[in-house]
Write a protein that binds this DNA or RNA. Structure first.
Length: 815
RNA sequence: GCCCGGGUGGUGGAAUCGGUAGACACAUCGGACUUAAAAUCCGAAGGCGAAAGCCGUGCGGGUUCGACUCCCGCCCCGGGCACCA
């Protein structure tokens, strides 16, 4: 029995410390503590993206993400920060609902079951979660405030109902936000998305487009994430130009262009088939053709409409517009390559300098005119394809010879003077459609009364409870299953006391997650969504770690909601997450893990066999955290052996002075780990600790206690249970995370006295020799010349030049 | 098509203000311990070569005393965007 206590049994150690953390409240704050620490301490809100609690249980991908975030939190805690690390469950939404339908279990039963299982699994991995501050978006206590946020936006005019062409998924029987449509398909079920005109609730995120974009310049986020958001917002600078319509002096065609410098080359125009002016400008002769084309386009779904590889189609309306620069009359066509939803739904076509227009002009034999000449081209150089590069203006009247950039400004100013141009900025970003014709979400808190019109549900009547209904399966009607329950949707009008109908759509699950970080500190507050004092002290979030798959969905929406709440006076910061870091994806055999591929790694078996500490360390050792890595079963024994050796070393260590070599390596290791943890370079930090342990144990020497004690702290963020146990066995009391602190290092001691010096002859390594740190060029050169092998390669030739890199190398250039 | 990220031993990966390529680990091989095996410990190892040495960081050029690192031109893989005017 006695030998047992000297061996590392992860299961035992982990059980012990998880129970201890639970009992002692090591990772929990009481309400009073949260308040006090927020006010007086060093509050550090360490956030990770809360999971969707699927029925399959915790995924290795989740564990990978959370482990990296937990390590960062534990590291900050050892550095003396008061770390608040909560977790919650994002359990509303189509995904849960579809799964519930498939299983035939009501989501109100399924979800709590999943959440419970997730909690159990999360505890096993040893995360530092404050289980007293958790959220579940499906509870009325939470979605009451999701509805409250909707109402605040509604009152501010940021939530509006409008009829619009929307993405309709025939598989899920609901609308989707643009962000949820991937290459024309539903990101959930893969069905081809259709276009439907429906009345929907939108959040006017486009009002914030510019602010969402410019703040990207200063927030401390992963570049990849910022770039994706920037592209998504898609600002483009140009001008709106007006083209009079021949024979209709009372109306004109307005177009958006980023190339006003090419207006002299606009030889025709194209309207989107849905454009309201089509009716007016179409001539009698063309009417049949135009109507035919319009109905054909209307019958086309969004997917094929937006395909770029199909041949261009279109019809001449017979109408003519006047090019405001040249005064020429040019034909007006309609074509489906012009989209109603972007810009003004109309373009001036410049076939000489736009690939799409070029292709169209070629097909329909429309005039192509060069107005930009690149290097080596003249005004008459033939155009075999659209020239979209830089150059100088040609065939452009008084503007000839101007550089195109200058041309943009000059022509816009010239046309503006004539009332034909306005500088204009456009964004690719669309308003956020938040209504869903589904069951499993928070009902949108709106009432319709025949007498009073559209009314918000009074705040004191929140939450609007999602009723338990059994027939929650959606149909193709375009209305929510809740609309089948008049006992629920018929209610009393708060305005006139008469009969009112509830809005039967529920809100998008991305609204639930767009504000959950505000809720954590105030998770149990039933008076307010977020306590003003706690919010002031704990927010914005110090560090947020999550996947880049949410770069343009969750992260953009969260920023928008935060800005809106600030403008409405509820919080005093613009940006919710001071730092955001995207982690990589963990894959298996080079492919994303998925049930359909059958390559999902189940964590439980590995934790059973090796323990959570090994599993955590292994995941972080796979590769750079921010790049992800390939899960290979074999590799796990590396970290496992390392932790075992650490255990044995710690328990066999003795009191005594440190060897010089060990001391130097110790300081170097602390320095390296500190640097690496700051930037989430976990794999190299682990490698440094392994190297250090190899030095401590080299040649079977007896390890010193002073060599081991700091290492226990360095490993603590990775292997918290093991660290606690060793900390205790080394004679300490209480949790290492409360009583230990991250070790300091002395930069002077981190470098060795002797360095291995390289001698090169003509840039090739010819010798290596140990030299004293700080050796002079002369000293190094003399030593180098003493070396017979170096002499052999110099071969009696004169030394033309000596290159000296202090403490690294000397290169003798001969010949 | 456009914008990112990446191509390094048998494998995962280290090292990029230009300065010892392959740290650390996996797998492999050899040794110790064991009746034996597992576990553990010690050691070897980029390729070619007996050795000296030569060659080696996706490919082709270039700059440099010196290039995984910088420049030019390509190829391949992963991600994002895409008739956005």
């Amino acid at each position: 029995m006695s030998h047992q206590t000297d061996s590392y049994f992860p299961a035992e150690v982990e059980r012990k410390w998880q129970a201890c953390w639970e009992e002692e409240g090591t990772n929990r704050y009481t309400h009073a503590e949260l308040r006090r620490v927020g006010r007086e301490g060093k509050p550090f809100f360490n956030l990770m993206m809360f999971p969707y609690p699927s029925a399959e249980g915790l995924h290795v991908g989740n564990i990978y993400a959370f482990t990296g975030a937990d390590i960062y939190g534990r590291y900050q805690r050892l550095r003396g920060q008061n770390v608040f690390e909560p977790i919650g469950f994002d359990a509303f939404g189509i995904h849960s609902e579809n799964f519930a339908l498939k299983q035939g279990i009501h989501p109100m039963e399924l979800i709590p079951r999943n959440v419970e299982r997730f909690q159990r699994q999360l505890r096993r991995v040893g995360f530092m979660y404050d289980w007293d501050h958790t959220v579940d978006t499906t509870t009325p206590e939470y979605y009451r405030w999701t509805q409250w946020i909707f109402l605040q936006l509604y009152k501010a005019g940021l939530a509006v109902k409008k009829e619009a062409p929307v993405n309709w998924c025939p598989g899920c029987n609901t609308v989707l936000a643009n962000e949820q449509v991937i290459a024309g398909e539903c990101e959930r079920c893969g069905s081809e998305v259709e276009l439907r005109n429906l009345s929907q609730w939108f959040f006017r995120i486009t009002k914030y487009a510019e602010r969402l974009l410019t703040n990207l310049e200063w927030i401390d986020w992963s570049d990849t994430t910022k770039r994706m958001q920037g592209n998504w917002i898609g600002r483009s600078d140009g001008a709106e130009l007006t083209f009079p319509i021949a024979g209709h002096e009372d109306s004109e065609i307005c177009v958006f262009t980023t190339r006003p410098d090419t207006v002299f080359g606009a030889t025709y125009m194209v309207l989107a088939p849905e454009h309201p002016l089509v009716e007016r400008i179409t001539t009698e002769e063309m009417r049949d053709a135009v109507e035919g084309y319009r109905s054909a386009v209307a019958a086309t779904d969004l997917v094929s409409r937006k395909k770029t590889d199909k041949e261009k189609t279109g019809v001449d309306t017979g109408g003519r517009a006047v090019n405001p620069a040249t005064g020429e009359e040019i034909p007006v066509w309609i074509a489906d390559y012009v989209l109603m939803e972007y810009g003004t739904g109309a373009i001036m076509a410049v076939p000489g300098h736009d690939e799409r227009d070029f292709e169209f002009a070629r097909k329909f034999d429309l005039a192509i005119r060069r107005v930009i000449a690149g290097d080596g081209e003249d005004p008459d150089s033939q155009l075999d394809e659209a020239y979209v590069g830089p150059g100088r203006l040609v065939n452009s009247g008084d503007f000839d010879r101007l550089d195109w950039e200058e041309g943009k400004r000059s022509i816009t100013a010239w046309l503006a003077e004539k009332g034909k141009a306005t500088p204009q900025v456009n964004y690719r970003l669309h308003d956020w459609c938040i209504s869903r014709q589904r069951y499993w979400g928070p009902p949108i808190p709106i009432l319709y009364c025949d007498a009073c019109g559209t009314l918000p549900v009074p705040e004191d009547q929140l939450p609007v409870i999602l009723p338990r209904i059994e027939d929650y399966r959606p149909d193709a009607s375009g209305v929510s299953p809740l609309a089948r329950h008049s006992d629920w949707y018929i209610t009393e009008c708060p305005g006139c006391g008469g009969e009112a109908r509830r809005e039967t759509d529920v809100s998008d699950t991305f609204l639930d997650s767009a504000w959950y970080f505000l809720r954590y500190p105030s998770a149990s507050n039933d008076q307010l969504p977020f306590d003003p004092e706690l919010t002031r002290d704990w927010l914005p979030v110090e560090m947020y770690i999550g996947g880049n798959e949410h770069a343009v969905l969750h992260l953009l929406y969260s920023r928008f909601i935060t800005m809106a709440l600030k403008d409405l006076g509820h919080i005093d910061f613009d940006e919710p997450f001071k730092r955001f870091r995207a982690h990589g994806l963990i894959v298996k055999d080079g492919a994303k893990m998925s049930k359909s591929r059958g390559n999902v790694v189940v964590a439980d078996a590995y934790i059973d066999e090796y323990g959570a500490d090994t599993f955590r360390t292994y995941l972080m050792f796979l590769g750079p955290y921010q790049e992800g890595g390939d899960f290979r079963e074999a590799g796990i024994t590396g970290p496992y052996n390392f932790l075992n050796r650490l255990w044995d070393t710690a328990l066999s260590a003795e009191e005594g002075p440190l060897d010089a070599a060990v001391e130097q390596k110790l300081h170097a290791t602390i320095a390296k780990c500190t640097e690496d943890l700051e930037v989430l370079s976990y794999n190299t930090a682990i490698a440094a600790m392994m190297e250090y342990l190899n030095v401590v144990r080299a040649g079977g020497r007896v390890p010193e206690l002073d060599a081991v004690r700091p290492l226990v702290l360095l490993i603590a963020p990775f292997a918290p249970h093991l660290a606690e146990e060793l900390w205790e066995r080394l004679g300490n009391h209480g949790s290492i995370f409360d009583h230990g602190s991250w070790p300091d290092f002395d930069p002077a001691k981190a470098v060795a006295d002797s360095v291995e010096f390289v001698v090169q002859v003509n840039g090739k390594v010819r010798s290596r020799m140990a030299m004293a740190r700080g050796i002079t060029e002369e000293g190094a050169r003399t030593a180098a010349l003493d070396d017979p092998n170096v002499q052999r390669f110099i071969d009696g030739r004169p030394i033309r030049k000596t290159v000296f890199v202090p403490d690294r190398l000397v290169n003798l250039v001969v010949g």
